[in-house]
Protein backbone atom coordinates (compact mmCIF):
# COMPACT_ATOMS: atom_id res chain seq x y z
CA UNK A 1 0.00 0.00 0.00
CA UNK A 2 0.74 3.60 0.10
CA UNK A 3 -0.62 6.96 -0.74
CA UNK A 4 1.43 8.83 -3.22
CA UNK A 5 0.93 12.18 -4.80
CA UNK A 6 -2.44 12.86 -3.27
CA UNK A 7 -3.77 16.29 -4.06
CA UNK A 8 -5.51 17.98 -1.22
CA UNK A 9 -6.66 21.29 -2.62
CA UNK A 10 -6.64 24.44 -0.54
CA UNK A 11 -9.65 24.82 1.71
CA UNK A 12 -10.93 28.24 2.73
CA UNK A 13 -11.44 28.31 6.45
CA UNK A 14 -15.12 28.80 7.21
CA UNK A 15 -16.67 28.52 10.67
CA UNK A 16 -17.50 24.87 9.98
CA UNK A 17 -13.96 24.26 8.85
CA UNK A 18 -12.67 25.67 12.10
CA UNK A 19 -15.01 23.48 14.16
CA UNK A 20 -13.94 20.49 12.11
CA UNK A 21 -10.27 21.21 12.65
CA UNK A 22 -10.88 21.61 16.34
CA UNK A 23 -12.54 18.18 16.46
CA UNK A 24 -9.55 16.63 14.76
CA UNK A 25 -7.14 18.40 17.08
CA UNK A 26 -9.07 16.99 20.04
CA UNK A 27 -8.59 13.51 18.56
CA UNK A 28 -12.30 12.99 17.82
CA UNK A 29 -12.83 10.49 14.98
CA UNK A 30 -14.78 11.74 11.99
CA UNK A 31 -17.60 9.39 10.95
CA UNK A 32 -19.30 8.85 7.61
CA UNK A 33 -22.28 11.14 8.06
CA UNK A 34 -20.46 13.92 9.90
CA UNK A 35 -19.92 17.22 8.15
CA UNK A 36 -16.48 17.39 6.55
CA UNK A 37 -14.72 19.83 4.21
CA UNK A 38 -14.88 18.79 0.56
CA UNK A 39 -11.08 18.72 0.43
CA UNK A 40 -10.97 16.25 3.31
CA UNK A 41 -13.52 14.00 1.62
CA UNK A 42 -11.74 14.15 -1.72
CA UNK A 43 -8.34 13.55 -0.19
CA UNK A 44 -9.63 10.54 1.70
CA UNK A 45 -11.45 9.07 -1.29
CA UNK A 46 -8.29 9.40 -3.33
CA UNK A 47 -6.01 8.02 -0.65
CA UNK A 48 -8.25 5.12 0.42
CA UNK A 49 -9.10 4.10 -3.13
CA UNK A 50 -5.42 4.25 -4.15
CA UNK A 51 -4.66 2.12 -1.16
CA UNK A 52 -7.41 -0.35 -2.13
CA UNK A 53 -6.21 -0.45 -5.75
CA UNK A 54 -2.70 -1.18 -4.49
CA UNK A 55 -3.95 -4.21 -2.58
CA UNK A 56 -5.83 -5.49 -5.62
CA UNK A 57 -3.02 -4.94 -8.12
CA UNK A 58 -0.67 -6.22 -5.44
CA UNK A 59 -2.31 -9.62 -5.75
CA UNK A 60 -0.84 -10.02 -9.22
CA UNK A 61 2.95 -10.13 -8.76
CA UNK A 62 2.68 -12.62 -5.91
CA UNK A 63 -0.25 -14.52 -7.37
CA UNK A 64 2.10 -15.11 -10.29
CA UNK A 65 3.91 -17.73 -8.16
CA UNK A 66 1.04 -19.53 -6.40
CA UNK A 67 0.90 -22.28 -9.01
CA UNK A 68 4.70 -22.66 -8.88
CA UNK A 69 5.30 -22.50 -5.13
CA UNK A 70 7.95 -25.14 -4.38
CA UNK A 71 6.20 -27.01 -1.56
CA UNK A 72 2.62 -27.75 -0.60
CA UNK A 73 2.93 -25.67 2.53
CA UNK A 74 4.43 -22.69 0.69
CA UNK A 75 1.61 -22.96 -1.83
CA UNK A 76 -1.04 -22.83 0.89
CA UNK A 77 0.67 -19.95 2.73
CA UNK A 78 1.09 -17.89 -0.43
CA UNK A 79 -2.49 -18.52 -1.51
CA UNK A 80 -3.73 -17.45 1.93
CA UNK A 81 -1.56 -14.36 1.76
CA UNK A 82 -2.65 -13.25 -1.70
CA UNK A 83 -6.23 -13.96 -0.68
CA UNK A 84 -5.72 -11.64 2.30
CA UNK A 85 -4.72 -8.88 -0.12
CA UNK A 86 -8.09 -9.25 -1.82
CA UNK A 87 -9.69 -8.97 1.61
CA UNK A 88 -7.72 -5.82 2.38
CA UNK A 89 -8.76 -4.29 -0.91
CA UNK A 90 -12.34 -5.14 -0.06
CA UNK A 91 -12.22 -3.57 3.42
CA UNK A 92 -10.67 -0.42 1.97
CA UNK A 93 -13.14 -0.08 -0.90
CA UNK A 94 -15.92 -0.37 1.70
CA UNK A 95 -14.28 2.36 3.80
CA UNK A 96 -14.12 4.62 0.75
CA UNK A 97 -17.74 3.84 -0.09
CA UNK A 98 -18.82 5.49 3.16
CA UNK A 99 -17.61 8.76 1.61
CA UNK A 100 -20.10 8.59 -1.24
CA UNK A 101 -18.30 6.81 -4.06
CA UNK A 102 -19.25 3.32 -5.27
CA UNK A 103 -16.86 0.41 -5.68
CA UNK A 104 -17.81 0.25 -9.35
CA UNK A 105 -16.78 3.89 -9.82
CA UNK A 106 -13.45 3.25 -8.14
CA UNK A 107 -12.95 0.10 -10.19
CA UNK A 108 -13.63 2.06 -13.36
CA UNK A 109 -10.99 4.61 -12.33
CA UNK A 110 -8.46 1.85 -11.81
CA UNK A 111 -9.26 0.02 -15.03
CA UNK A 112 -9.12 3.14 -17.17
CA UNK A 113 -5.65 3.92 -15.82
CA UNK A 114 -6.87 7.15 -14.26
CA UNK A 115 -6.34 6.03 -10.68
CA UNK A 116 -2.93 5.48 -9.17
CA UNK A 117 -1.75 2.50 -7.17
CA UNK A 118 1.53 1.71 -5.49
CA UNK A 119 4.35 1.74 -8.06
CA UNK A 120 6.04 -1.21 -6.43
CA UNK A 121 3.57 -3.58 -8.06
CA UNK A 122 4.74 -2.56 -11.49
CA UNK A 123 7.95 -4.48 -10.92
CA UNK A 124 8.06 -8.14 -11.98
CA UNK A 125 8.48 -11.17 -9.71
CA UNK A 126 11.09 -13.14 -11.64
CA UNK A 127 12.12 -15.94 -9.31
CA UNK A 128 10.76 -17.67 -6.22
CA UNK A 129 13.12 -15.55 -4.10
CA UNK A 130 11.16 -12.50 -5.23
CA UNK A 131 8.21 -13.84 -3.25
CA UNK A 132 10.42 -13.83 -0.19
CA UNK A 133 11.75 -10.36 -0.94
CA UNK A 134 8.29 -8.94 -1.61
CA UNK A 135 6.95 -10.29 1.68
CA UNK A 136 9.95 -9.21 3.66
CA UNK A 137 10.60 -5.78 2.10
CA UNK A 138 7.39 -4.66 0.43
CA UNK A 139 5.07 -5.87 3.16
CA UNK A 140 7.57 -4.59 5.70
CA UNK A 141 7.43 -1.13 4.15
CA UNK A 142 3.65 -1.35 3.82
CA UNK A 143 3.23 -2.22 7.49
CA UNK A 144 5.38 0.73 8.43
CA UNK A 145 3.09 2.97 6.40
CA UNK A 146 -0.07 1.34 7.67
CA UNK A 147 0.50 1.16 11.41
CA UNK A 148 0.15 4.93 11.91
CA UNK A 149 -2.95 4.95 9.69
CA UNK A 150 -4.76 2.96 12.39
CA UNK A 151 -4.96 6.30 14.20
CA UNK A 152 -6.20 8.19 11.13
CA UNK A 153 -8.87 10.79 11.86
CA UNK A 154 -11.46 9.12 9.64
CA UNK A 155 -13.21 6.35 11.59
CA UNK A 156 -14.01 3.86 8.80
CA UNK A 157 -10.46 4.11 7.39
CA UNK A 158 -8.86 3.75 10.80
CA UNK A 159 -11.02 0.70 11.60
CA UNK A 160 -10.24 -0.91 8.23
CA UNK A 161 -6.53 -0.33 8.91
CA UNK A 162 -6.77 -1.97 12.32
CA UNK A 163 -8.16 -5.08 10.67
CA UNK A 164 -5.59 -4.94 7.85
CA UNK A 165 -2.66 -4.54 10.25
CA UNK A 166 -3.85 -7.43 12.37
CA UNK A 167 -4.00 -9.71 9.34
CA UNK A 168 -0.88 -8.33 7.73
CA UNK A 169 1.36 -9.31 10.60
CA UNK A 170 1.98 -12.78 9.16
CA UNK A 171 2.75 -11.49 5.66
CA UNK A 172 6.13 -9.98 6.35
CA UNK A 173 7.15 -12.97 8.45
CA UNK A 174 6.30 -15.46 5.74
CA UNK A 175 8.48 -13.45 3.33
CA UNK A 176 11.38 -13.38 5.75
CA UNK A 177 10.91 -17.11 6.36
CA UNK A 178 11.27 -17.78 2.61
CA UNK A 179 14.45 -15.69 2.55
CA UNK A 180 15.84 -17.45 5.60
CA UNK A 181 15.28 -20.86 4.05
CA UNK A 182 17.00 -19.71 0.86
CA UNK A 183 19.93 -18.15 2.70
CA UNK A 184 20.49 -21.34 4.67
CA UNK A 185 20.21 -23.41 1.51
CA UNK A 186 22.36 -24.22 -1.50
CA UNK A 187 24.62 -21.73 -3.29
CA UNK A 188 22.01 -21.39 -6.02
CA UNK A 189 19.40 -20.49 -3.44
CA UNK A 190 21.63 -17.90 -1.74
CA UNK A 191 22.40 -16.30 -5.08
CA UNK A 192 18.68 -16.22 -5.84
CA UNK A 193 18.00 -14.45 -2.53
CA UNK A 194 20.76 -11.86 -3.08
CA UNK A 195 19.52 -11.19 -6.61
CA UNK A 196 16.00 -10.60 -5.30
CA UNK A 197 17.25 -8.18 -2.63
CA UNK A 198 19.30 -6.34 -5.29
CA UNK A 199 16.23 -5.80 -7.42
CA UNK A 200 13.68 -5.02 -4.68
CA UNK A 201 15.70 -2.82 -2.32
CA UNK A 202 15.43 0.51 -4.13
CA UNK A 203 11.81 0.13 -5.25
CA UNK A 204 10.96 -0.68 -1.61
CA UNK A 205 12.58 2.55 -0.42
CA UNK A 206 10.57 4.45 -3.02
CA UNK A 207 7.35 3.07 -1.54
CA UNK A 208 7.44 5.79 1.10
CA UNK A 209 7.03 8.42 -1.58
CA UNK A 210 9.24 11.36 -2.55
CA UNK A 211 11.49 13.08 -0.08
CA UNK A 212 9.72 15.45 2.32
CA UNK A 213 11.31 18.47 0.67
CA UNK A 214 9.65 17.47 -2.64
CA UNK A 215 6.38 16.22 -1.19
CA UNK A 216 3.73 18.82 -1.90
CA UNK A 217 0.70 17.52 -0.10
CA UNK A 218 1.97 16.43 3.25
CA UNK A 219 1.16 19.50 5.28
CA UNK A 220 -2.61 19.61 4.87
CA UNK A 221 -2.89 15.83 5.27
CA UNK A 222 -0.93 16.01 8.51
CA UNK A 223 -3.19 18.80 9.79
CA UNK A 224 -6.23 16.69 8.99
CA UNK A 225 -4.87 13.69 10.82
CA UNK A 226 -4.74 11.60 7.66
CA UNK A 227 -0.97 11.43 7.63
CA UNK A 228 0.93 10.91 10.85
CA UNK A 229 4.58 10.63 9.80
CA UNK A 230 6.63 12.15 7.02
CA UNK A 231 7.91 10.05 4.13
CA UNK A 232 11.52 10.48 5.18
CA UNK A 233 10.81 9.51 8.80
CA UNK A 234 9.22 6.25 7.72
CA UNK A 235 11.93 5.53 5.16
CA UNK A 236 14.61 6.02 7.81
CA UNK A 237 12.75 3.71 10.18
CA UNK A 238 12.46 1.07 7.47
CA UNK A 239 16.16 1.18 6.63
CA UNK A 240 17.15 1.01 10.29
CA UNK A 241 14.91 -1.98 10.85
CA UNK A 242 15.76 -3.88 7.67
CA UNK A 243 19.54 -3.51 7.38
CA UNK A 244 20.31 -5.66 10.46
CA UNK A 245 17.86 -8.29 9.17
CA UNK A 246 19.73 -8.42 5.87
CA UNK A 247 22.94 -8.81 7.84
CA UNK A 248 21.45 -11.68 9.83
CA UNK A 249 20.51 -13.37 6.57
CA UNK A 250 24.03 -12.88 5.26
CA UNK A 251 22.84 -10.68 2.40
CA UNK A 252 24.36 -7.42 1.18
CA UNK A 253 22.16 -4.36 0.84
CA UNK A 254 22.93 -2.91 -2.62
CA UNK A 255 23.80 0.60 -1.45
CA UNK A 256 27.47 1.70 -1.35
CA UNK A 257 26.52 4.75 0.72
CA UNK A 258 24.93 2.72 3.48
CA UNK A 259 26.67 3.33 6.82
CA UNK A 260 25.75 3.53 10.48
CA UNK A 261 25.74 7.10 11.74
CA UNK A 262 26.40 7.02 15.46
CA UNK A 263 25.53 10.66 15.91
CA UNK A 264 21.99 10.45 14.55
CA UNK A 265 21.48 6.92 15.84
CA UNK A 266 20.45 5.69 12.41
CA UNK A 267 21.82 4.70 9.03
CA UNK A 268 22.94 7.05 6.32
CA UNK A 269 21.88 5.73 2.97
CA UNK A 270 21.86 6.63 -0.71
CA UNK A 271 19.21 8.45 -2.67
CA UNK A 272 16.78 6.31 -4.69
CA UNK A 273 16.61 7.06 -8.41
CA UNK A 274 13.60 9.37 -8.37
CA UNK A 275 13.54 9.68 -12.14
CA UNK A 276 12.80 5.95 -12.26
CA UNK A 277 10.09 6.44 -9.65
CA UNK A 278 8.37 9.11 -11.74
CA UNK A 279 8.71 7.06 -14.91
CA UNK A 280 6.97 4.10 -13.25
CA UNK A 281 4.33 6.45 -11.89
CA UNK A 282 3.76 7.77 -15.40
CA UNK A 283 2.98 4.25 -16.56
CA UNK A 284 6.37 3.29 -17.91
CA UNK A 285 7.39 0.69 -15.34
CA UNK A 286 8.18 -2.87 -16.42
CA UNK A 287 4.66 -4.20 -15.71
CA UNK A 288 2.21 -1.27 -15.70
CA UNK A 289 0.47 -2.44 -18.85
CA UNK A 290 0.40 -6.10 -17.87
CA UNK A 291 -1.08 -5.30 -14.48
CA UNK A 292 -3.88 -3.16 -15.88
CA UNK A 293 -4.55 -5.66 -18.65
CA UNK A 294 -4.91 -8.46 -16.09
CA UNK A 295 -7.34 -6.43 -13.97
CA UNK A 296 -9.34 -5.42 -17.03
CA UNK A 297 -9.54 -9.02 -18.21
CA UNK A 298 -10.74 -10.27 -14.82
CA UNK A 299 -13.39 -7.56 -14.72
CA UNK A 300 -14.59 -7.99 -18.30
CA UNK A 301 -14.57 -11.78 -18.17
CA UNK A 302 -16.52 -11.69 -14.92
CA UNK A 303 -19.39 -9.51 -16.16
CA UNK A 304 -21.61 -12.50 -17.03
CA UNK A 305 -21.12 -13.86 -13.49
CA UNK A 306 -22.00 -10.62 -11.73
CA UNK A 307 -24.97 -9.94 -14.00
CA UNK A 308 -26.17 -13.54 -13.85
CA UNK A 309 -26.30 -13.46 -10.06
CA UNK A 310 -28.10 -10.12 -10.13
CA UNK A 311 -30.66 -11.57 -12.53
CA UNK A 312 -31.24 -14.60 -10.32
CA UNK A 313 -31.61 -12.49 -7.17
CA UNK A 314 -34.22 -10.39 -8.96
CA UNK A 315 -36.11 -13.53 -9.99
CA UNK A 316 -36.17 -14.67 -6.38
CA UNK A 317 -37.38 -11.29 -5.17
CA UNK A 318 -40.14 -11.31 -7.74
CA UNK A 319 -41.18 -14.82 -6.74
CA UNK A 320 -41.39 -13.78 -3.10
CA UNK A 321 -43.37 -10.68 -4.06
CA UNK A 322 -45.78 -12.72 -6.18
CA UNK A 323 -46.14 -15.25 -3.39
CA UNK A 324 -47.07 -12.48 -1.00
CA UNK A 325 -49.58 -10.87 -3.37
Amino acid sequence: MYAQLVETGAAEASEKDREFQEKIDRGVRIEANDWMPEGYRKTLIRQISQHAHSEIVGQLPEGNWITRAPSLQRKAILLAKVQDEAGHGLYLYCAAETLGISRDEMTAQLLSGKAKYSSIFNYPTLTWADIGAVGWLVDGAAIMNQVPLQRCSYGPYSRAMIRVCKEESFHQRQGFDIMRQLCQGTDDQKAMAQDALDRWWWPSLMMFGPSDKDSVHSEQSTKWGIKQNTNDELRQKFVDQTVPQAGWLGLTVPDPDLAWNEEKGGHDFGEPDWSEFHEVLRGNGPCNRDRLAARNKAWDDGAWYRDGLTAHAEKRRNMVAEGAA
Binding site: Q59, V82, G89, L90, A294, G302, Y305
Partner: peptide, 10 residues
Protein backbone atom coordinates in the same frame (compact mmCIF):
# COMPACT_ATOMS: atom_id res chain seq x y z
CA UNK B 1 -5.54 -21.39 -6.74
CA UNK B 2 -4.73 -20.05 -10.20
CA UNK B 3 -7.88 -17.88 -10.00
CA UNK B 4 -6.61 -15.90 -7.03
CA UNK B 5 -6.47 -12.31 -8.21
CA UNK B 6 -8.48 -13.02 -11.37
CA UNK B 7 -12.00 -13.93 -10.18
CA UNK B 8 -15.08 -11.99 -11.34
CA UNK B 9 -15.58 -10.08 -8.10
CA UNK B 10 -13.57 -9.59 -4.90
Amino acid sequence: AAWCGHAPVL
